[in-house]
Structure formats: structure tokens, C-alpha cells
Design a protein around this nucleic acid. Sequence first.
DNA 1: CATGAATGAGAGTTCATTCAT
DNA 2: GATGAATGAACTCTCATTCAT
Lengths: 221, 221, 221, 221
Amino acid sequence: MNDRSLQRMSPARESLFEAAIGSFAEFGFGGASMRTIAQRAGMALSNLYNYAPSKQDLLVQILKTANYNHLAHTEWAISGAGNHPADQLRAGVRAYVEYVVAHPAEALVAQTELRYLDAEHRRRLVVARDRIDEMLQGIITTGTASGTFITPFPREATRAILTMCGGVAQWYRPDGSLTGDEVANRYAQLALAMVQDAASLPTLETAASSPRRPGTTANKS
Amino acid sequence: MNDRSLQRMSPARESLFEAAIGSFAEFGFGGASMRTIAQRAGMALSNLYNYAPSKQDLLVQILKTANYNHLAHTEWAISGAGNHPADQLRAGVRAYVEYVVAHPAEALVAQTELRYLDAEHRRRLVVARDRIDEMLQGIITTGTASGTFITPFPREATRAILTMCGGVAQWYRPDGSLTGDEVANRYAQLALAMVQDAASLPTLETAASSPRRPGTTANKS
Amino acid sequence: MNDRSLQRMSPARESLFEAAIGSFAEFGFGGASMRTIAQRAGMALSNLYNYAPSKQDLLVQILKTANYNHLAHTEWAISGAGNHPADQLRAGVRAYVEYVVAHPAEALVAQTELRYLDAEHRRRLVVARDRIDEMLQGIITTGTASGTFITPFPREATRAILTMCGGVAQWYRPDGSLTGDEVANRYAQLALAMVQDAASLPTLETAASSPRRPGTTANKS
Amino acid sequence: MNDRSLQRMSPARESLFEAAIGSFAEFGFGGASMRTIAQRAGMALSNLYNYAPSKQDLLVQILKTANYNHLAHTEWAISGAGNHPADQLRAGVRAYVEYVVAHPAEALVAQTELRYLDAEHRRRLVVARDRIDEMLQGIITTGTASGTFITPFPREATRAILTMCGGVAQWYRPDGSLTGDEVANRYAQLALAMVQDAASLPTLETAASSPRRPGTTANKS
DNA sequence: CATGAATGAGAGTTCATTCAT
DNA sequence: GATGAATGAACTCTCATTCAT
């Protein structure tokens, strides 16, 4: 899937947004300066304003694209994952993390800098984010109802999963010890564990054969 | 435990740091200005420099206090939780979240603004944060070794738990539908589920027959 | 008489100069921007430079046309007013004001923005204005010499008359309570009064009874 | 009378406003830059903003002071000129012009730059100017009613007088051929002539026989 | 003639910080 | 400790202008 599939971009526009994302990720919205961004994009400062009427608008454009691409990638994966909630959740989490590790700077900006927008822009931008939230919560709720998942707090579980997945943007490095795929897989497993997916649980016999907490009730008893 | 136990503060100092935390939380380090902070603190701009030699230092002081108080609160709770990994993890997560909901702005700043410090300061400040990480990871590893927990990825589980707990700062509101205690408890359960704490697991058919560690979980047993 | 008689204009050129005059009148030379003017003229910014090589030149062209048209209109009226100084002055003032009320924005710009030009351009542009001044002063001096007018300060009277007539541009509105003709007539009478035109004066005993030069004054007598 | 009598000023403030008035007079509001003003005032650019929160506000402050001082000076002179309309008009015009020649730059700015303010500020600022207008018009109307003055257009006469007096700011130079006092006196005479003040009129043959208010006019009698 | 993209200079304004009092 | 005045650097943004098409 193309990065900027939603709106085909001229090379200048492309490099500008790349530079802006990089700068916002590195210094934050307040810390990044239009001069720096222009330099990074290889164009004159004043030319920025042919692409975005203000710094705020630059951020808005970035967040809009980022959020909707993230949504698209995740929704697409879920919609191809069949009917079983566990498969859907696994696919969703995997895709969500995949997008983050594929665009760490963009994802970081999307998480971090949304707060600095005015209420109106924020309202319109969270729509995409909320859609992902609703999808995941729907999956978890359905799974819980059907007995596949067990969790008394679908709302908090959803939030926790999204938060922990988004957090990947803060430490993931492409040259780190784990590939993006590995990270995505592991987070998918952790998410399934959190909702106590039946299939992921230790089975009875294996549970018995290898009693990991001998005297499980040892806690108290 | 007192908020600013490490260094007793004059009222002026108190209101200054309160103002700074509030401003940083609201506008980010780059977006907050010394003028705004001074106004919020009800003092003259130049008087700020009697308490902190620079804006950076203001942030450093805040983060130092925040991180060490967070560490202290969490470590204290764990150290009083006995020997069982599940109890320790639960206590740790609960305490961690408790601190976040008790000081949402401070916690938000601590998470968000650390990146904007120079390497040296960052290095010294992450120590406290890393200590919490190590403690949690130690608990999880120990628990896994002893069979209480089941997770193939203790490293990622630790990070995920801390991230999701820290994320509470981004949405928690004191006047929301959940009290801070409820949030803390639920997140503790979610964390235990993620590491598949034996006692928290539903057994398949024996679910009803042998509730291990009765009374621990509010959900199922 | 055609407005732009000196140089026939294409529609684009026409709308450009109209836009420029409007913008200069509204915001001043310094406050008006080429972008604004272009928008107002309904053309692209860069296209302006096909009609004027610079903003300054735009103003120069406007002022040149304005000043010479104003001069032409006034001189023509005077030259058709016969030999009597009073008739000449009346015709001159009337025509001067007529032009102002017919082109308020242009006249306003001509008065206001001349100062912002460089010395050379200013020198060449004041020629037309000075010609009007000289004509009026000539009329007044002649009239004073012949006893028709009485004023000890022909120089100041001339300046005062031109200033007060030019000032009409600052308050005249086409939809105001007075038509342009009425304004022109009244200002002509005021000017004649200022130089104490004999025929306009009330005589001692005949003040109420006999208007001297009957039909000249529309007002009371 | 002190220049800034209304509000005592620190030396820095004083020199700032002097510089601002000079710059606005020379280059216009749009053409003057805060940098230039600061240089002229001998202070750092940023320090300007300790005295005026914006360039607009700088202009507003100047215009407020200028207009009210002009009003004060003129009103004071009129109020000390006795009951006769001719004396009042002469005193008023003289004082008005006196102020202009005493503060040519300030007066020029007051006339020229008012238009560039937003409606609200303009509305509040014209109050002082309108008060002068009303005073003059009152004098002329009264004089006309009592037969001292003869003019069918008191409204236009008032405007014309004020305009021509204000126009002095555009050409008067302290080192010119006329002193400020001379200019003021001559304009007062011209104004009286314009309203056909009885005492200022030349009598025809009875000029010597019936001087109405003898000794009033310096020019003829 | 007309345009959109690009630019260097400079605009107004705010920044963190200092210093004499 | 506390303040108001002052400063140099940097900010976002707009300016008039150019040029390839």
C-alpha cells in the first residue's frame, strides 16, 4: 500500500511533508521551526506557504493523512480476517502495529501532537482514531459474548491494547533486535492474552503436566 | 505520602511548579512560555529565574521529582506485597496507576516531554523510569520461571504494561465515570491477564470447581 | 470626457488599475499588497507584472493619469469660462470638485500617496498639480489686481482653496445627501467668498434688496 | 503647553513616541517599520512591545493623544475669546493652525493615517475631531443667525475651513518663509472671509464712513 | 497574455534571558 | 525574593518579484 495513497503528491509536496513529519517527531510541534522544516525539505522557507497556509495546517494535513491511512490499513486487515474474533483481533493488532513500525515518525506525531490543535480540528481528527477503537471494542465484545474471550473490562482492554501498540512508536528502531513483523506478532499475542483468548490459554492437560505454579492456590491457602 | 516530599517548598515555589506542570501539560514544553507560566503562577516573569536558572532546568526539576516520586510510590507498594509474583505485579501496577491518576498533568509531562531534553539530562532522568521497568520485568521473569505466569515475551510484556498504564494520563479525568482506584484495579487485572497469571485464568471445565486463589479476581470466579 | 482617454485600455488592464486604485485608496500604498490587488482584479499575481514592472510603477501610472486628467478637466473648464476672473474661478473650482466627486478613490490616492514616491517621480508628477495651482493663483492675482477680488494673501488663498476642494475626496459619498454638482457649486461659492468677490458680497444698503450680477449665486441674496 | 501633558512620560516612552510619529509621518503607517522606529528611538526592537502591544496600538495611542491635545488647545482658545462669533472663529482657527504648525508631524499623521484603523478604533478617535467640528459649526451657525456672518452653507464652510487648516501640515516647514503665527493669522482671515464676516468686508464707497467693529481686522482697514 | 511554483528579504511579534533596583 | 525595563535571537508569516511553461 502506498504511503500517500489518498492524495498523489508532487515531489516538492512529498519532500515537504516528509520533512515536516521528521521535524515534528524529533522536536515536537512547538519545537520544530518552519525554517528547519524548509531546510530539511530543500526548499525556501516562503515556499512552504504554497503548500500549507500555516504551521498548524501543516500538522493537520499530516494528522489527517496519518490517521486515515492507519485506519485504512487496520480496517482492511480485519475485514480479511474471517469471522472468528480471535483471528480478527490478531489481524487488527498486527496491522495496527505494522503501520506503526512502517511509519514510526508519523505514528509518533499522530499520537503526541494531536493535543496541540484547537478543539475543532481535534474533533474532526479523532474520528478516524475512534473508528479503530470502535472496531476493536466490537471484536472484543463479540468475542466475550461468544465465550472466546474472557474479560470483564472490554472498554479498558481496548484502550490498553491501543495504547500499548501505539507506544511501539516510542521505542521501535528499524535496526533494533526485533523486526517489525516480530513486534507485530508478539503484540498480537499479548493482546490475545489480555482478553484471555481460549485458544491461547494453556490447555488442561498441558496445564496439568507442567504445573507452573505448584499449588496454584498457594497464594493464600 | 507527600507530593513534594523530597524538597519542602515555599508557597511561591509550589505555585511556580504547579503552573509549570500545568503549562507543559497543556501546551508542551515548546509551546509553553515562561511568560505564561509566570502569569499562571502569579509572579513576575523575572522572578522565575530565582527558582530555576532556565526553562530547561525547570523541566528537569519537574521530571526529576516526578520520576522519583513515581518510582518511590511504586517500589514502596511492591516491597510491601509479599513474595508472590502475582501479588507483586498487582501491587506494582496498581501503585503505578494510582500515581498517574493522582497526578495526571505531572505524569503526562513526564511521559511526553522527556524527549526534548539534551542527552545528558535524559540519561540521568530515565534511571528512575528504568528502575521501575526492571522491577516489573524482574517480577514477570521470576513469575514465569516459577510457572505462575506464562508469557514467552517478558520484555515486551513489561513494556506493554508500562505503556498502557502510562497512557492512562492521556484520558483519565477525576470527574470521569471511573474512580482512580477502579482504574488502578482494572489495569492490574489486565496486566495479570496479559502474563496469563495462573490464578487469574479460567479453567476449562474445572473453572467452577477449582478457583485457584479465590477472591482475587472480580470478574469470573 | 473619457476616463482613461490618454491610453485606451484592454479589459484586463482596466480592471487591474481599478483594483489597484481601490486597494491603494482603502489600505494606502504601503498597506496594499500585489496579491490583494491581483485578487481584486481577478487575475493571477504574476500577471500583474505584464502591466506594470513594479508596484511603484503601478502607482506612478495611476498618479500620472489621475493628475493629468484632473488638470485637463479643470483647464478645459477654465478656458471656456470667458474673461472675468470670478467666472474663471467659479468654473475652475467647480470643475476641480467635479473631477473629485466623479473619481473619489483616484483623487484620494493622488492626494495621499504621492509622498511615498522617490524624488524623481514625485518631481515629474507634481508638474500637473502645480499647473492647476498656478492657473488658480493667476486668476486670483489678476482678479485682485483688477479689484474684482480682495484678498491680501493670494498665495495662501490658492492653497486653501485647492486643499479644501481636494479634501472632498475624504468624505464625499455618491449616495450622500448632496449630489456631486451641489458640492461643486457650494465649494465654488465658498471659494469666491474667500477671495471676497465683489459681486458675491452684500452691499451696504443694497444687501437685502439687489443682487448685483443677478443669476450668479444660487443661494440666497 | 506641554506636548504630552495628558500623560507624563518616561524618557524612553517619550523618545519612542517621537520616533513613531516621525516615522509614520515620513513613511506612512504601512511604510514605517517597527525596526526603523526602534532604531530612531534608540532602543531594541523588542522593547517597543513594552510600551505598545502592537503597531496598531502604537498608532492608536498617538492619535488619541494628538486628537485630544488638538481639541484641548483649540477649545481653550475659543473659550477665552469672548462672546462675539467673529472673535471666536478667529481664535479657533488660529489655535487650530497653531497646533498644526507646532506639531506638524503629529498633525500629519492624525489626518492621514486614521483611515487605516479598524472601525471601532476609528469611531472612538473621531470623537475629538468631531467635537472641534461641532464647535466651529456652532460658532458659524450662531454668527450667521446673528447676521455677523453670511454663508448659506455653514456645514460645508466648517468642513472647508477645517480641511484647509489641516492641510497646512502638508506643506508647512518651520524654516519656511512664514512663521507659524503668520500662517495662523492668515488662515484666520481667510476663514473669516469665507463666512463673509461683516467687519472683515470691504465697504464699497462707505468703507471709511461705517467701519463696523473697527480695529478688528489687520489687513484692510 | 497568463499561470503556478519558487525565492530572498523583511515584516510584526514573541522568545528566553539579564540586570539594576 | 521580587520587580520592570531592556535585549538579541528566533519565531511565523507576507512581501514584491522572478521564471519556466
